[in-house]
Design a binder for these strands. Sequence first.
DNA 1: CCGGTCGGATACAGGAACGTATTCGATACA
DNA 2: TGTATCGAATACGTTCCTGTATCCGACCGG
Lengths: 202, 202
Amino acid sequence: MAATVTKRRARTRQRLLDAALHVFADEGFGRSTVEQVCDRAGFTRGAFYSNFSSLDELFLALWEERSARMLDDVRDALAGIDPDDPEAAVRAAIDATPVDDAWYRITAEFTAHALRTPGLRRVVAAREEAIRDAILPVFVTALGRLGRQVTDERALGDALVAVHDGTAVQVLLQPEDEGARTRRQALFMNVLSAYSTPREIS
Amino acid sequence: MAATVTKRRARTRQRLLDAALHVFADEGFGRSTVEQVCDRAGFTRGAFYSNFSSLDELFLALWEERSARMLDDVRDALAGIDPDDPEAAVRAAIDATPVDDAWYRITAEFTAHALRTPGLRRVVAAREEAIRDAILPVFVTALGRLGRQVTDERALGDALVAVHDGTAVQVLLQPEDEGARTRRQALFMNVLSAYSTPREIS
DNA sequence: CCGGTCGGATACAGGAACGTATTCGATACA
DNA sequence: TGTATCGAATACGTTCCTGTATCCGACCGG
């Protein structure tokens, strides 16, 4: 049964990925070594090279897996939102994309890495679009329930993502300053209202 | 004359910093080595260790120097703005902080690095505040000339920085898409109007 | 119960980068 | 011009990491 064999492979592969997440977060991707990842995962380098051909490959695999999972989480969180309470819905949607320190570090480095690797740039861009498209409809319908019409969906989507990314850094840089989070919330609200208009009753 | 001696030191120090900028941009800070920097600068490792004690130290020095210079450039650009044409002033102010590929990569990595190094976190946060404080008055006065009053300056400052950072990534990720730049501009405008109100004539 | 295959462990050699201790040349000053 | 000093070059030993080639055990099908 080939599936069982694959199952074993998949498990060590997964453990390597999980270990890498922490190593990259702690040391930075650039400063991480194959050995560190293996030590943390409880494997030898032999196992590593039997699963990946290089750290770069693992890095890509890790980023794709985690960002896809995060996208799913966001989708789930958004799906569970009560659209009859639009105010709360918006608030919940904003909270759905948490500001995670370790993950931010990894994506920041990966984005930088992608910007100097043409092939990867498109991968990142595509995932960013996917996130935008997943988030957008929730806000559009929530705003709709509030009697507001989104004027330019694409623009709103980009704006939300940009605001999320930009404010995340600020929040992380000043963990003691609770005001940063508040201003973040406010900025989201302002953008939402700036990109929508009260719908005239037909 | 001690100054002459210092002058020599300063020159090689500067050449090392310049070389490091390119190496870091090309390879990423994490993947860069002392040797690469020295090769590019035309020095040996001996010269390096006579000027810096580690790559980390150079990285910090480089970032401080360049970000301070960038801050000065922004100040200069803003100083040359004609406040009698507020619309153009705002536009010019937005353009004053250019979206530079190589520099973005370096700051992204440095920020990530700073987030895992407590001492550096404050340094980055402080510089970010300085940038905010330098930019803010220009927008406030420009809005003033347009008859608008800024409601919460701190919030506006943070929002502008966040929008700048967040949209910069998008612009860099999609260099072919001219729309990204346009939406960036629009988002700035929207934020400016969201954080200010028409001033009633007293 | 037995051979075959798959996957992780082991072992090896090579190379890359580090940091230091020392040398050598150039520059400043008397 | 001679000399002291400063700064970059050289040379060294060491550590760490890489990647591959091989081995061994476990699980599979028959």
